[in-house]
Every structure is written in C-alpha cells, then in structure tokens.
C-alpha cells in the first residue's frame, strides 16, 4: 500500500539546458499533480521521479514524459512529480505550465 516511486531517464536529441535553478508548479489535488524542475548536471540527460499512489501505469508515464521531453528538449534537469491520479492530459498540461512559469 505504500506510495510508489517510478524513475525515468531521457536523452533529448538537441539538449536545451534548464535556464533557472528550480521551478515548482501545481497542487496535489485529487486527479492532479505538482512538479519541481531543477537544473542538474546530467550530461545532457533528464531524470524524472514520479511519486504516486497508482500502480501499473509505468508505460503511460514513459509515454507522456517522453513526449514532454521531445517537445521541450529539456536537458540537464531533474523532474520530481507528486501525483494523485492525474490523467495523461493533466500531466502534460502541468509540465508545460511549469515551463511557462519561468517564461520558457
């Protein structure tokens, strides 16, 4: 019953470094999530940690996060997500909103 932690790593083709130290966005409401994106020297890669009560959707996370990295080419960053049953649409939206917070 404990919370699940999922770890992912992506290597964008044309890495764009994250321009600020860190940004936080979102509220862990029901069906929602929050995210922290932090600059982190990872040799052009981006790592993601998802903490969620939900199990069995690892491949969906892989897909949604992969699409976000493809779009943003975000590199040398660590993304931490606290999820509470957010749908893939909500996940994509919150990640993009987090980037908007820093004017990206």
């Amino acid at each position: 019953m404990a919370l699940n932690q999922l770890h992912f790593e992506f290597a964008p083709a044309t890495p764009r470094a994250f321009p600020v130290a860190a940004v936080h966005y979102g509220v862990v409401g029901s069906g929602d999530m929050e995210v922290i994106i932090e600059a982190c020297a990872l040799a052009g890669k981006t790592q993601v940690t998802v903490t969620t009560p939900v199990t069995g959707f690892d491949h969906v996370w892989q897909l949604v996060l992969g699409r976000f990295i493809d779009e943003s080419q975000l590199a040398d960053a660590h993304i931490s997500i606290n999820d509470n049953n957010a749908t893939p649409v909500v996940v994509s939206l919150r990640l993009r909103q987090a980037l908007l917070e820093i004017g990206e």
């Binding site: 019953m1 404990a2 919370l3 936080h24 932090e38 903490t51 969620t52 931490s80 606290n82 509470n84």
Partner: peptide, 20 residues
C-alpha cells in the same frame, strides 16, 4: 517551501499522495 521537500512522513505508509 516545496523545494525543501518537507513531506509528510506518515502519508506514504498509507499509500496516500504527498505534497512537497
């Protein structure tokens, strides 16, 4: 703030979502 990541030490045991 959230970057300090002081999350509840009690919610994970119950499988309940946490917030930073």
């Amino acid at each position: 703030g959230p970057l300090e990541r002081f999350v509840s030490p009690h919610l994970p045991i119950l499988g309940e979502a946490i917030e930073f």
